[in-house]
Design a protein around this nucleic acid. Structure first.
Length: 114
DNA sequence: TGGGTGACCATAG
DNA sequence: ACTATGGCCACCC
């Protein structure tokens, strides 16, 4: 295995996540697809797991699963921190799920126009 | 070497 | 709406 590659992959993920506008959200799979199908969405989740230790801030709360569900909430400091951050940006979260997910969905493939 | 797991996803029924 | 399954790939026993 190649640690340097892992680190590069992590940084690419963080770079994309930082481009997500305030009040918008995207999914693990969308990021994986944007970075190349070679890496699965599980790898994005793996990268996000380490995102908290980054010096540069990573808006991890703007990444949810494909259904708009806050599957990563337990990896934040407190159980409802992720939800609070999203609500602070004007999103509505009901039952760990973002309301009108498709209206706030931000797809890197499309928005970054590559 | 191999099984279990995971901040996932697409598809099928 | 739900479960089941297979694919994914790195990690940890």
């Amino acid at each position: 295995m190649n640690l340097e590659k892992h680190e590069d992959f992590f940084q690419m993920v963080y770079q994309v996540v930082r481009l997500i506008p305030k009040g918008r959200v995207t999914s693990y799979g969308a990021i994986a697809k944007y970075l190349g199908a070679a890496r699965s969405s599980r790898m994005v989740g793996w990268a996000m797991n380490a995102s908290h230790s980054q010096k540069k801030m990573v808006p991890a709360h703007r990444v949810v699963n494909r259904n708009g569900q806050l599957t990563g909430k337990h990896h934040f400091g407190t159980p409802f921190l992720m939800q609070e951050l999203l609500e602070k940006e004007g999103l509505e979260v009901v039952n760990d799920k973002i309301r009108n997910f498709d209206r706030h969905y931000w797809e890197p493939m499309k928005e970054l126009e590559l």
